[in-house]
Amino acid sequence: MDPVTALRTMERQGTSTADALALFDSLPPVQVDQMLGNWHGAEVATGSPLDGVLELSGWHGKRYHSAEDAHPLVMEGRRGLFAINPALVPMGPAMRTAPLLLRLKLGGVVRALLPLAKTGKPAARLRMVEYRGVVSGTMVYDALPVNDHFRRVDEDTLFGAMDLRGLDSPFMFTLHRED
């Protein structure tokens, strides 16, 4: 199966972390300049404690204006798209309460609170970083112990592995170019 089809299947059906990482590791690196633009994101469910949380919160994707101007959390709101400051998102409590938030379907509450974290300032930078033995484009958060590592599926698709301190395995997701 070609990587694009494999990734689309994983987006729809979910997969194991091992299979997601096997596909990730098979893909070529992406250069920072190839990452610039607006991206729509999708989760790849692997059994991570974060599965479903971004979707529940109204996550749309990411914006990369330059290597120094990256917006990691672009959300969908009543008035359109907006970026939030990840430093204002309590990652520890979010990870601990994710199953409860999902079970109680509290997405509306979460989405109602997110505009309080709205920002126009960049909250991350893009760098070439080695991860799993390959140097590739990585988004480094300014205020959180998080790196989003990417591999290139095709010109308009990236496969991401969010490496978060305290998470046993990466949270997997895709980005699809909107430009």
Results as ranks from 00 to 15, higher is better:
93 P>Y: 01
91 M>H: 05
27 L>Y: 05
154 D>H: 11
37 G>R: 01
2 D>V: 03
19 D>W: 03
56 L>Q: 03
137 G>D: 08
136 S>D: 12
71 H>Y: 07
122 P>Y: 09
103 R>N: 05
62 K>Q: 01
55 E>T: 14
85 N>H: 02
98 A>G: 03
136 S>W: 05
172 M>W: 04
48 S>I: 09
54 L>T: 09
16 S>A: 13
94 A>S: 15
61 G>F: 01
76 E>H: 03
106 L>A: 12
10 M>I: 13
167 L>P: 01
1 M>N: 13
121 K>G: 07
133 G>A: 10
163 D>N: 08
73 L>P: 00
155 E>D: 12
130 E>Y: 08
92 G>F: 09
43 E>D: 13
124 A>I: 02
176 H>N: 13
154 D>A: 07
47 G>F: 11
148 D>K: 04
72 P>L: 12
142 D>I: 04
149 H>V: 13
50 L>P: 02
53 V>K: 07
63 R>D: 15
115 P>K: 09
120 G>V: 12
68 E>F: 08
41 G>N: 00
175 L>P: 00
100 L>Q: 09
18 A>E: 14
4 V>I: 11
32 V>H: 05
104 L>M: 15
67 A>H: 10
69 D>T: 14
42 A>W: 08
49 P>M: 03
40 H>Q: 15
145 P>A: 05
129 V>K: 01
25 D>W: 10
68 E>C: 06
129 V>G: 01
133 G>L: 11
69 D>A: 13
22 A>Q: 15
167 L>T: 07
151 R>W: 01
36 L>D: 00
169 S>Q: 14
89 V>S: 14
166 G>V: 04
